[in-house]
Design a binder for these strands. Structure first.
Lengths: 333, 333
DNA sequence: TTGTAGGCGTTATCAG
DNA sequence: CTGATAACGCCTACAA
């Protein structure tokens, strides 16, 4: 493997010049640049990324912290991130998080300027220590789909989305509307609900009573949705519509309901949250979340912060949109 | 940020000793280890991954080269890879490939011992130059779901899978069986089919004629499946069963057929390839591919090769399994 | 068993 | 504009 020194010798210049050519630095004459490039070509030289990172004290790598959930929106986000990254010369390190321990370790490490220059945090609620360090240390991070006052973030307004979903159900005639929510902190089932506030606001505004048993918090999985449905059906007055806090839960609810011989819609209406091909296949009425856009924008925001660490943190919210398909209808009277 | 030297000073030892403690090296007395660990603790020292990689000439990172397709099996593979990685201290760099140019660049770079110590190559057919370098250079790589004589690989026998699918269709009474295949090289539509050989073998063995128009090669997408179906339906004698080379294509076929008012099964039987929750939702009869297992095993194989670069390359094949669900039935007579 | 010194391949800072 | 030269933080012989 030739080094920068070999190139310098081959071109008859100093290593400083080679470095400047490599990095598009200023003050390089065309003649010198030509000679250096020719030497590089002849030797088949490639700079070592590791040595570069070491010397420059920056890795040109960003890391993605993401819970290991198998939902289609992960791929959508990843695709958005790749879009945001394309053109830049940054590489992507993926750290999947399986539990709270993983998460804390990952946040700890990523604060210490390790293998990456910045982090994208997807669907994870960082521990407060993370934010403390974020203000001290200029390690840029952007949160996706989670908000925090002190940090940069790109996401949606979950409560507004829930309100839209509930409003829609009310509009088509439902009055017994349930919520299958999920914990806002994926690793703390006791944490606040993702969109329960919006759900309650919508009921309140419509003058509908809040029924405690209609508010369930479930696992972020098909099974979670199915189990929550089970609980609803045990009520003396089961809901006629269910708003779910995720696509997978919604799908679980639809399938479980049909397994019991219920018609969806008809016997039960279901609204999901987030959208993919599979919601389309099932005809799921759902709140579309522009996950790919969010990934792209968050990545661009991170790159901008990397380029200008002094820039002020900002939070961007993207609108969601109700996609009316085939799992909602008027209640049976 | 404290360095190893600060730790050495704090502990009153040499940096060599600190390094040895850090790396679990031999010949360290317990007393010294204690003192060093205490100093590390006091200073909150963390070794710099970059400096480490630079000094040790190894990054403790592996990279994943993967085409940017949005199929559920990508997540399954990723999950398997994470499983294989867990416990090791390796990080995962993800390089998504969008076109042949990306691919060649990525292979070129990853051969030159750059940011990673080894590579996992998923669903990608490497250019032949890659294999040449693989034999010269000891950069370990493991291919997933693609085979090559000279390289380590973990995958399945695509032809055997296709034979199973076709045999099943024959067994339940079909005689006009079509194939929606895909190019084995994702970036070269003209490349050989993934499982066309197995398909032909099965027909031959059953004494069924090979109908040219029944063999389509389509995009690895829902649309690809739908378009291939279109072509079949233009035949004077359309097939009664279709074997697809992927889950997404199969889903596309099922949905497109139903859109036209065909019943699946009944008017048309469909067998998919690879399995996920969504196949389950749709009741797709499919060839189950243990993608997660493959990811795990490939990762372990790579780590083993990293630990012992001299070890002989091997190829592992995992069996696939026909999952009979609800998209196949006897043909209408 | 422990400490020391040299090297890894760049970048960046200076004089020239 | 260009060429030395000093970091960068760690690993690893090798010497003690």
């Amino acid at each position: 493997m030739p080094t920068i020194e070999d190139v310098a010798r081959e071109a008859g210049v100093g290593i400083g010049s080679v470095s400047r050519v490599l990095n598009g630095g200023p003050y390089v004459s065309d003649a010198l640049r030509e000679r250096v490039l020719a030497a590089i070509e002849r030797l088949g030289y490639r700079p070592s990324p590791v040595a570069r990172a070491f010397g420059a004290r920056r890795t040109r790598t960003i890391e993605l912290l993401v819970p290991l959930f198998m939902a289609p929106c992960f791929l959508q986000a990843l695709r958005g991130i790749e879009e945001g990254l394309s053109g830049s010369h940054y590489a992507l390190l993926v750290r999947t998080i399986q539990d709270a321990g993983d998460r804390d370790r990952a946040f700890e490490e990523c604060c210490r300027r390790g293998q990456s220059d910045g982090a994208l945090v997807l669907w994870l609620t960082p521990p407060s220590s993370f934010f403390e360090r974020l203000t001290l240390d200029p390690v840029p991070a952007v949160l996706l789909n989670v908000t925090a006052d002190e940090a940069r973030s790109v996401g949606v307004d979950h409560d507004a989305s829930a309100r839209d979903a509930v409003d829609y159900c009310i509009r088509i005639g439902h009055r017994r509307i349930a919520l299958v929510d999920r914990a806002i902190d994926a690793f703390d089932p006791a944490s606040h609900g993702l969109c329960v506030d919006g759900y309650r606001q919508a009921l309140l505004q419509a003058g509908l009573p809040r029924v405690k048993a209609y508010e369930q918090k479930a696992d972020f999985s098909q099974m979670g949705g199915a189990m929550a449905l089970q609980t609803f059906l045990e009520q003396s007055e089961p809901p006629t519509a269910v708003v779910a806090a995720s696509e997978v839960q919604a799908i679980g609810i639809v399938l479980a309901a049909r397994d019991r011989g219920w018609r969806v819609p008809g016997d039960l209406s279901v609204v999901g949250y987030s959208d993919s091909q599979y919601s389309e296949y099932l005809g799921l009425t759902t709140i579309g979340v522009p996950v790919q856009d969010i990934g792209r924008e968050a990545t661009r925001m991170l790159l901008a912060a990397l380029a200008d660490p002094a820039s002020a943190p900002q939070s961007i919210f993207r609108p969601t949109e109700l996609l009316v398909r085939a799992t909602c209808g008027p209640p049976r009277s």
